[in-house]
């Protein structure tokens, strides 16, 4: 099941691995002698500016560690990710606790360079490493009646200072329709830039659904349940008129408190321009079919 999708954002869109830690200095140095143009194919130049490791790992929403963007990078180190197991239950043939290392030995990890669009109207481009969620679900054996997949983040107050206050009802919960979960774009990410995914980004494994707002891509997963009914999801429980179950990126349907028509890419500095947000975050060709006949205004 792996390799069902080919990156549209190519390696040329990502800073070379050897340079990503100090891209700014290198770019500044190269720009002067006009080497940047040579380093990238012409077509990719119009593509998105990739984000650095520093950007991806220092600007996070992970409310279990605090509500400020730099809180997860500051406090997530307390989360113990070894050993780690994922309980897979519900409508599956082989329910049980799956050890993270055992999962990894079965899965094919590949690189997926995806746009990431937060519901707060900022975005990044992230080179994830991970495996298709479909492969994991097939490992557990999805039963006939299953229609939805529910996910849960670890809830450990001792390791998660942000959970001392009920910002949301813990544990954090998310869900997908089964066809969304089985879609080749949907992955479980275990790395970024070929390094193990840092705690603030959802170690040791997190969901990535690139055509949905970032909060759907639940982090540090401990439980996956196959269900017949639509599972409750954290942000929908917190503010149902603001966050629907689907939460597909849609520039035509605004958040009640702000516009979703445009976004600002993280890393552009103090004078960064807003760019238009793309339908399904740029993955319309791949996923629009999943929602055929559905009113996306109703099913936001």
């Amino acid at each position: 099941m792996a390799h069902r999708w080919t990156n549209t954002l190519t390696h040329a869109d990502v800073t070379p691995r050897s340079a990503f830690l100090n891209r700014r200095q290198i770019m500044a140095g190269l720009a002067g002698v006009g080497l940047t143009a040579m380093a990238r194919p012409a077509a990719a130049q119009e593509a998105l500016e990739p984000n650095t490791w520093e950007e991806i790992t220092s600007y996070n929403n992970f409310y279990e560690f605090g509500t400020r963007k730099d809180d997860p990078a500051k406090y997530a180190h307390t989360l113990v990710t070894e050993p780690w197991s994922v309980q897979i239950d519900g409508l599956v043939d082989r329910p049980g606790d799956y050890d993270f290392q055992d999962i990894m030995s079965e899965m094919t990890v590949e690189e997926r360079i995806y746009r990431f669009r937060c519901v707060e109207a900022w975005s990044m481009v992230i080179p994830w490493n991970g495996f298709e969620l479909a492969d994991l679900l097939n490992m557990a054996g999805v039963q006939e009646g299953a229609k939805y997949v529910a996910f849960e983040t670890a809830y450990r107050p001792d390791e998660m200072p942000g959970t001392r206050f009920p910002v949301l009802e813990w544990p954090y919960r998310e869900g997908l329709r089964l066809d969304e979960a089985m879609h080749p774009l949907t992955i479980m990410a275990t790395g970024i830039y070929d390094r193990p995914i840092p705690n603030q980004n959802g170690a040791p494994l997190r969901l990535v659904v690139p055509w949905k707002y970032g909060f759907k891509s639940i982090k540090s997963i401990v439980k996956i349940t196959l269900t017949e009914d639509e599972p409750p999801t954290s942000w929908n429980m917190s503010a149902p008129h603001e966050y629907g179950f689907y939460s597909n990126v849609n520039p035509n349907v605004n958040h009640p408190r702000w516009s979703q028509a445009s976004e600002r890419q993280v890393g552009g500095g103090l004078f960064a321009k807003r760019i238009p947000t793309l339908m399904f975050n740029g993955y319309e060709a791949e996923v629009a079919g999943l929602y055929e006949g559905m009113d996306l205004r109703e099913n936001y």
């Binding site: 963007k69 600002r264 993280v266 890393g267 500095g269």
Partner: peptide, 15 residues
């Protein structure tokens, strides 16, 4: 600080 990275990688909303 916003101009020199002291407010993080997204200085507009931070400022």
């Amino acid at each position: 600080r916003a101009l020199t990275g002291g407010l993080g990688v997204e200085p507009i909303s931070a400022l």
